[in-house]
């Protein structure tokens, strides 16, 4: 089932085009990796999907409906289904809010009814944090724990899709592997779209992959196929550049 379909979108900052004719679909239950280097346009695609910018042309459809930032009722439904996690767990959590207030934000903002406290405790449990974290502040946690808090905020409203922007890139290796494990676990119920420059992480988490270069999709398909048999020269170069462990 298609969750989101991106149809021939283009975008530019001023006169500088950053995306050309980009189309892809996000399917329910299939984690998708968006891979590219700086200038590839991957962050711009994310901004468009997050509803922070409007495409210059083309359309983004969510369950058949075109994304319309002005339609508040639609955006509320969209945001309820699509939440986000960001790269830097130090700047993505408000230092002045308790963990409870941070995780409660989507519930409150989207006017979701029900027992918020119970939902927050459940979300904390889902990301592997103790319930007593609820009254503490972000600075009392390590980078990995903060990213878990950010994940709890993303899943507390039980969205269908989580957009993860380099969500593990700022973490230490030992933490990174555990957060990727956690994301894998969560993705049994929630689809994840991971935007990353790190092929290893994408390979470990995503069934499908899109390779971007200078605002264009150069290759897309099943991750295993593309890694084993890259077609486009850029994909080959990218793969060859990844440092490998000595045999």
């Amino acid at each position: 089932m298609t969750l989101i379909s991106v149809e021939a979108i283009a975008f530019s900052y001023g006169r500088k085009p950053v995306l050309h004719d980009v189309s892809f679909t996000v399917k329910k239950g299939i984690n998708l990796g968006l891979v590219g280097e700086s200038g590839s346009g991957k962050s711009t695609i994310l901004k468009l999907l997050l509803g922070l910018e409007r495409p210059a042309s083309g359309a983004i459809r969510f369950q058949g409906e075109t994304l319309n930032l002005r339609d508040r009722e639609f955006m509320r439904r969209y945001r309820r289904s699509v939440q986000a996690v960001f790269q830097d767990p130090y700047s993505s959590l408000d230092p002045r809010q308790t963990v409870e207030a941070i995780i409660a934000e989507p519930l409150r903002a989207l006017k979701i009814s029900g027992d918020h406290h119970a939902a927050i405790v459940q979300a904390l449990a889902d990301v592997g944090l103790p319930a007593d974290a609820i009254s503490r502040y972000p600075h009392e946690f390590s980078g990995g724990q903060r990213q878990r808090i950010a994940l709890a905020r993303a899943i507390v409203a039980r969205p269908q899709l989580v957009l993860a922007d380099e969500a593990v890139s700022a973490l230490d290796l030992s933490t990174r592997i555990r957060i990727v494990e956690l994301l894998k676990e969560l993705s049994q119920a929630i689809t994840i779209l991971l935007v990353s420059h790190d092929l290893g992480v994408v390979a470990a988490l995503c069934e499908e992959i899109i390779i971007l270069e200078k605002g264009r999709i150069v290759e897309a398909g099943r991750t295993a196929d593309i890694l084993a048999n890259p077609q486009h020269p850029y994909t080959r170069k990218l793969l060859a550049s990844v440092p490998r462990m000595p045999a």
């Binding site: 955006m75 986000a84 960001f86 993505s92 408000d94 934000e105 903002a109």
Partner: peptide
């Protein structure tokens, strides 16, 4: 980022 997070949270 927490402002972007707040916006995307709705």
């Amino acid at each position: 980022d927490y402002i972007t997070a707040a916006r995307t949270a709705g």
